[in-house]
Design a protein around this nucleic acid. Sequence first.
DNA 1: TCTTTATGCTTAACACTGTTAAGTAAAATA
DNA 2: TATTTTACTTAACAGTGTTAAGCATAAAGA
Lengths: 203, 203
Amino acid sequence: MGISERREREQEELRQKILDAASELFAKDGYANVSMRKIAEKIEYSPTTIYLYFKDKTELLNEICEETFSKLIKDIEKIENKTDEPIICLKKGMQTYVEFGLKHPNHYEVTFMNPLSEYLGAEEHPYEGSMGQKAFEHIVRQVTRSMEAGQLKKADIATVSQMIWALGHGIVSLLIAHKDFPFVDKDILTKNSIDTILEGLKP
Amino acid sequence: MGISERREREQEELRQKILDAASELFAKDGYANVSMRKIAEKIEYSPTTIYLYFKDKTELLNEICEETFSKLIKDIEKIENKTDEPIICLKKGMQTYVEFGLKHPNHYEVTFMNPLSEYLGAEEHPYEGSMGQKAFEHIVRQVTRSMEAGQLKKADIATVSQMIWALGHGIVSLLIAHKDFPFVDKDILTKNSIDTILEGLKP
DNA sequence: TCTTTATGCTTAACACTGTTAAGTAAAATA
DNA sequence: TATTTTACTTAACAGTGTTAAGCATAAAGA
């Protein structure tokens, strides 16, 4: 029977419509300035309809962020496939990470800058399987390869990976959060930072 | 006449009472979970009374954060006075920064992790004169001295300072925001990060 | 075809939030 | 003692996320 299939299709369409409307508002105004009522108005449904498709506001915007960050992972994987030397790959990966974060500041904020786990409970949006984890695993892989190739000195992989992530995250989040601060050119800051930390990690 | 002086004193007392109540709630529950009504209830005044002493919620909590971070600056200045070698001073300063941030996660969040400037308008809480600026200026000074002493290679001071800040901030904000992430020991991560970036900046 | 059940959405409401305008009792001044 | 000023409160506005209850319409069963 094609009826239930049609209904399923219609449901999926509305679900996507909600995601699209929310995504647009969210990218423009940020998490705090997007309300369920505004999303509802945009799609011309009542606010409560959204709750038939998403558990709550957090789940809705979290899904948007996950989708966005899956694009970052694709970008990084492209680099991985194109680049031979792992340390070059690591450099380019970091540069991509920073650029991506600055291009999607609201998504970055929700995914990486908010202590959501505190309020949400880690069970509902676990680190395991998230796009954040996948992105980090790429750092780990490139660090491992760089060490194996003798391009980085041998050290604890987790520590080195987290250190590199902290630097990249620090640049992105500072630039996002302090728009009035007199930062030097972001590309120069990024490039110098990456070069410096890798210099410090040389064999 | 002592009357107006007594009144001034009483005003100052209530103002401080508001600050203390807000500070306690804020340190415990974070910005989002502190409401004007809760603060009011704690001090046994009506919510609107707070607005006679503070322009709005942001100004109130911002004042608390500024006060807290002035303590960090004092700590850093102590180190500066005790330590001769500028690069050691820089190291200890960074370690202090990270420890301080982790000790006051909610204050750190409001001061450094929120893109408040976007919504508040930079005019009302300008970077100029803020505790954030003062803390950063200490980094700049130590970087300058380290370069002059030949302990760091000569490079653009602003770039190097911002790079160091980004790393410190990255560590603090990641640890605060991702409580469920399997970080390596925070002291090890901090120490290694500082050592590595300074290694990369050697002459 | 007619009745019943289920689906999909809406209206109304709750319990909050920050914030403002208007009002009130007490204190200080004249 | 009458007036003005001060310090505070009550009531309300406009908004938030979210839930419970209701209501048409579409599907399914008799």
